[in-house]
Simulated assay, not measured.
Amino acid sequence: MKRGNIVANVAEKALWSVINTAERKLFGENFIISNSTPYDVIYRDRIMSVRHYLPLEESQISVGDDPLEVNQNTYRVPLVLVPPLAATSMIFDLMPYRSVVRYFLAKGFDVYLIDWGDVTEDHSDLSLETYVLEWMPAAMQQIRKVSGQEDVSIFSYCMGGLLSLMYAAVSGDKHIKNMITVASPVDMHSSGVAGQVLSTIYRPAQIISQLMNISLLDLPARYLHVPGWVNSLAFKLTSPVGNVVNYFEMLMNMWDREYLKEHLTMSQWFNEMVDYPGETIKGMAVHMMINNRMAKGKMKIGTEQAEFKKIECSILAFAGDSDKLVSTSAARKALDIVSSEDKEFCVVPGGHAGVFAGAKAPGNTWAISADWLESRSN
């Protein structure tokens, strides 16, 4: 390339960098390309809602750089997507070419999603009971009404998988036909450094609680409410160098509008995490983290007892091979606590986010899930 062309190319990139930087500051939403798949809201209760995604109009979609033919036939058993609590539902419809929603629609599934909503300090009273005993049953009832089918399949991520297991264990819902959990830490005492700490403090915490007759459950929920920015910071601290590198790469590519759309949409996932309600944190800290009740097979949720051996549906559990938040053993425990005979465990490429929605997820987690569901959804 001649020197004049090089200078012109650099000047053009500099100009577009300035334009994109200004637009990002003034109209940042122009760069966010998540939640683009059309849907109907079929149920709402306070901040929670249930979406029913409309069939794709295209005959072919793009998944990453690869084309995928749209299946014109729909499987009988509807698929219910269950998000975690700290991340918004956008992660299931992240980008048009990397969308869990669009992928499963193209594969021929009738897709629904439970959206937990935007939690603020005003919602610190939301508890595990709210999610498991109120919202999950209500959502399932409406999905069955709209779909006309009793049987449902569940595809869940992280905490969404734990909530799904709790619901199935408490309700004894025999019409959950299939369940998929992705990076769901059932055994919290076996998940990395955090698990070792929880395992260590388990016995002392019990002794102190008994001697002093106190419990975290007695504290006002507002004192344990976790703001979204704390969740974001905790997530980023699992890979501080990676976050610096990503930011540097963004600066070097400010001229590239398509790159910025992908980068800033992904960043929204990590930068705009949702609050954890204080009442939910209380239940999680005592029952799931310190006492590790899920891994032991029984757990108290409000006045109800969740017995995970009641779960008999087909189950597929995933773990990421480089997940620093949820270890392989923590995710595999989902298979140990259920009575299901048809169960399978897969370790696939990716960290905690990558295993679910990274560049390799469509060819691994999504493809394996779709193939597994196809033979179990008629």
Rank of each mutant, 00 (worst) to 15 (best):
A317T: 07
S329M: 12
G192E: 15
R98I: 07
V170T: 08
P362A: 10
M289S: 12
G350Y: 06
L81E: 09
S147Q: 04
K145C: 03
G161D: 13
K324T: 13
L85P: 03
L54I: 11
K324D: 12
V348C: 02
R332K: 15
M90C: 10
N292F: 08
L81W: 06
V18T: 05
V326Q: 09
D66Y: 02
D275T: 02
I208F: 04
E121W: 06
V10K: 13
A285Y: 01
G228W: 09
S377M: 07
M48K: 01
G28C: 02
L251A: 08
M1P: 11
H189N: 14
I301L: 05
V7Q: 05
E58A: 14
M288V: 04
V245E: 14
A139F: 03
L126D: 02
G242V: 06
S340N: 08
E344F: 04
S369K: 06
M136K: 04
A367W: 01
D40Q: 11
A169D: 03
L335R: 06
L373F: 09
M250F: 08
N213M: 06
L224P: 05
H189E: 12
A86P: 08
S59I: 00
K174A: 14
E150C: 01
I208Q: 00
R332A: 15
A169Q: 10
I6F: 13
G278A: 08
M48G: 01
G28F: 12
M252P: 00
C158F: 04
K298T: 15
V244R: 15
C158P: 08
E150H: 12
I315T: 13
D187M: 05
L105T: 01
Y131M: 09
V80M: 14
M299T: 03
Q141A: 13
S322D: 15
Y103G: 06
A331V: 14
Y157C: 08
W135Q: 10
F104Q: 03
M159A: 13
W135L: 08
L264P: 07
H225W: 03
G354P: 01
S164Y: 07
L224M: 11
N231I: 05
M266R: 15
A194T: 14
V119E: 08
M284G: 06
V7Y: 11
G363F: 06
